[in-house]
Amino acid sequence: MKEVAFGQYYPVDSFIHKVDPRLKLLFLIAYIVAIFLAKNFYGLAACAGVLLAIVLFSRVPLGKVLRAVRGVTFLVLFTAVINVFFYRGDTVLWGWKFLQITREGLIFSAFLVLRILLLVVCSSMLTYTTTPVALTDGIESLLTPLKWVRFPVHVLALVMSIALRFIPILSDETERIKNAQKARGADFESGGLVKKVRAVVPILIPLLLSAFRRADELGDAMDARCYMGDKHRTKYKKLRFTWRDAIVFFVGGALIAGVVVLRVYLGAPV
């Protein structure tokens, strides 16, 4: 009955949602490279502009996007504080013992914070617009060349697929067992660390037993459907590139090129 809002996928139909997952993965990598190549605010502005376009085209509400940022608030603040106080620059604005705030420090920490934010928002756009299933397919497909070095790509993909299938089941089950023990007066909230750890036992044991039982049954069901590993196996689903992917490919390439140009001609921020 209860829907598990698994992962962060935001189910709307958009241009970005429809892009091939492999390309989205590659684009994310390209984007990260671009962010680190960018040496000045012009480069980052280009990255931010592209990201803004992605957010707008994805039809994911802005509030949802900002929520992704909330998770890294601490990291952002920490980075900002450290760099503001410890970056050694020439234009001292304020100083006290070994602490000093410089103009360069302010600029540099703003630069770093912007980098982190872009990074976080772009990666969450991937998970907002791509179902876990598509993501797995994409990863499997991208890893295919590794088969040549005997890397078990197929097994990895199957494990990911089964995990995706069973995570919601097991999380439901955890909830059910937790409720059942709560109904028997179990208390998971109060008490010290030792008490809390001990309180988990009545959840953990039934959960493990259930997971083993499920694994056992799943194994039988896979056997019954002639599972013999990678041998002679065909694959029904093939990912195909479309015109959308061409656009994304072009944008990704242009972004990196643009950032490199900006880097070469306009120099460092500080």
């Binding site: 023990q181 709560k182 109904a183 028997r184 044991i205």
Partner: peptide
């Protein structure tokens, strides 16, 4: 709620799957 749960017992579906001891 603790007092409530003492007065209202709840047996879930397939309750044997909550045994642990």
């Amino acid at each position: 709620f603790r007092a409530l749960r003492k007065s209202v017992g709840m047996v879930f579906q397939y309750p044997e799957y909550q045994l642990f001891a």
